[in-house]
Design a protein around this nucleic acid. Structure first.
Lengths: 115, 115
DNA sequence: CATTCGTTCAACCATATGGGTGAATAACCT
DNA sequence: AGGTTATTCACCCATATGGTTGAACGAATG
């Protein structure tokens, strides 16, 4: 069944994922596993600070998790919340298909009353 | 292999979907089928103009299609591009799972060399 | 203690976004 | 032609966003 999640959370997730840099960070983390902010930064042509901010956005959306080990912040991708995107899309598609089926039903039933 | 679609298109799609009003519009259209801008507007507590702007964002992201019939603009949800979201998510998950499998492989092989 | 390292915080800037209002355009209906 | 209807365009405004630089902080290390 459709887990009706917080609209705000979903917005945050989608918005966080809508930035190419942030998607690249997620991909990088999925490939490499947990990385430090500095390591992530080394893969991008932008200030460490900007990368840090992107990570914060991802973190607040729940798409990454931070394990602060001593002075190093290990950032790890979190796949769980991403399924909310999937769920929303699936729900939308199911609503859409339901309507089409109903429409088809109306059009194909041999009811002489139509028109 | 990861089907690398236009990064910009995907960004546009995710960004368009990241707004609650726009998601509501998509849901409405999926439920009701094609609607006019005015009809959509009647469901929201906001100016017609704002609704029109939201529709334009959805349109540019390819999430809705516009059939301009005479003076009426019929707006219809377009499910196709939404699968890009799905595809991106699936690709990310697959990258993630591949890494975990490889990791598991390393950890479980009876290699006496590990320390 | 001073330094270096890893990271964030604070301030700043340009641009985008979401909202509003009012005018303009375009087509239909007398 | 004049009025109504449907929609967008052009502005305006407040706030958010993505980027920058420089300072600050906390912890390891010489």
């Amino acid at each position: 069944m459709v887990e009706r999640m917080d609209d705000d959370s979903l917005s945050a997730i989608l918005k966080a994922a809508s930035d190419p840099t942030r998607r690249a960070i997620l991909t990088l983390l999925a490939q490499q596993g947990p990385m430090r902010v500095t390591d992530i930064h080394s893969q991008f042509d932008m200030s460490l600070n900007s990368v840090s901010k992107h990570i914060k956005v991802l973190e607040q959306a729940g798409l990454v998790k931070r394990r602060t080990e001593w002075r190093e912040h290990m950032i790890e991708v979190e796949m769980g919340p991403m399924s909310h995107i999937d769920a929303w899309f699936a729900a939308l598609r199911s609503i859409w298909e339901l309507r089409l089926e109903a429409l088809d039903d109306i059009l194909t039933k041999d009811d002489p009353d139509n028109d």
